[in-house]
Amino acid sequence: MPLDPTVLEREFPEFEFNVERGKIREFAMALGLKDPVHFDVEAARAAGYDDLLAPPTFTRQFWHENDENDPMPHLGYDPKRRLHGEQEFEYHKPLVAGMSLRGRNVIVSNREKEGRRGGKMIFVVIETRFVDEGGELVQVARRTLIETAAPPKESE
């Protein structure tokens, strides 16, 4: 698809991200984490946190798929040609159970690049700034999605 220069100015609705103990434990277990700060409230408090600490990759920029907070369906990208190229986090404050974050997705870059095997690839970077109830910045997440020139398998 052609690059749409207006996407950089589009605003997507703000969403709420509630950090729950059960979800932290489930997430930590799915990744094989052993550290009790993710499972045991007493251990988390002994380590200086107010409650269970979320693992480093816990925040979500949108709810898969076709969520109204997910900019991708609105941009016309082909989901079968879409790859997750890169994911980045900046940590400003510990993320613990009981916090309620607000986030808003912004497209910070959208560019075309010549693929190594020919054809055009599109790189889109979606940034989410997560703030707590006091408006303080907790985390910034950046997700780079790639639309390949051909379905991913054929470009392997």
Binding site: Y49, P55, E88, F89
Partner: peptide, 11 residues
């Protein structure tokens, strides 16, 4: 666990 300041992953 709380020590990370930045973390970037390339697939």
């Amino acid at each position: 666990p709380g020590a990370l300041r930045t973390f970037r992953i390339r697939f």
